[in-house]
Amino acid sequence: MKLSKQGASPFFTRAGLTRGGVFIVALIVMPQLFPQHWIWNMMFFTVLYAAMSVSWNLVGGFAGYPSLGHAAFFGIGAYAMASLFKSTHILTNGWQPFFVMPLIGLGCAVIAIPIGYIAMRVRADVFAIVTITLLFVAQTLGYNLKGLTGGAQGAGLSVAPFRLDIFEQPFYFAAAFLLLLAMGIAYFVTKTKLGMALTSIRADEDKARGVGVRTTGVKVMAFAVSVGITGMAGGIWAYYLGFIYPQFAFDPLITIAIVLMTFLGGRATVWGPVLGAAILMPAQQLLAYYVGGSQIYLIAYAAIFLLIMLLLPRGILPTFLNKRRMASMATKGDLSGVSTSPVATGGINS
């Protein structure tokens, strides 16, 4: 990203605005072109997972703290929605629950602050396992706090009163809205000093502390925002399904999917996770259709994961952008200052 020589770095560029506009239009128009139910369903999940991946990216990609138990918050959001249904009558027209969503998001974000503060006191790899522990604890609570969650029997929400022929649509648009919100936040992060702070934490946290970066506050903030969005996604999902079970609300496969999508598309970029979701979700549906059975997912995910880590660690988007950048620098003869030593062949992120 070329910065102008004078003045401050811009918040919006013409190219960026165009991209955003085209994307929004695509989001609205695309499913209308293929109005089958299974398409709407797949697009719903794609957009939902994209939203979660973009928000996971804040803490896992930008900050370098991979939250491997993020599904815990998805489930918490889902059960929060379920208990709202149980305790209040928010179902007047089908749209009310969607307006309650921000409250769930806020609630999740708030409880994430103390959790993040404790969990992020440690190195990134210990943090990863702490989040796995969190997921496991959440799952256990989901099974055992029967009064609150209905235990293994699951929890029911009322079925949304939308017409059957357009049933998926409100949910799709809610998820799309969530995605745009997440992307907006991610975009904001990259255009402000928050992005630099997070990147410095990922690059070398101790050094970041040493040059005065407010590492704890920034990390916890990223975590809280990420959790808030994930919680909202869980709420939408719960409403969509109408009935939730703990093993699906707190399913490790959810985390694995969003981590993979983020890394495939390109962590620490705004569009990377979206790309990853757009590739992986349909691929997963296809795989499920031809092979079935959830066990094969694990091996497929693991294999793709390992391949990406070893061959394309930055993900598709950054690698592509970096090649383009190198090419343009070469033609301009700007490579005079660039070292060709092994350490210099990294990709770009910011």
Binding site: T192, K193, L194, G195, V218
Partner: peptide, 8 residues
């Protein structure tokens, strides 16, 4: 932190 990435 919430200001522009790089100010003048």
């Amino acid at each position: 932190l919430f200001g522009r990435r790089i100010t003048a």
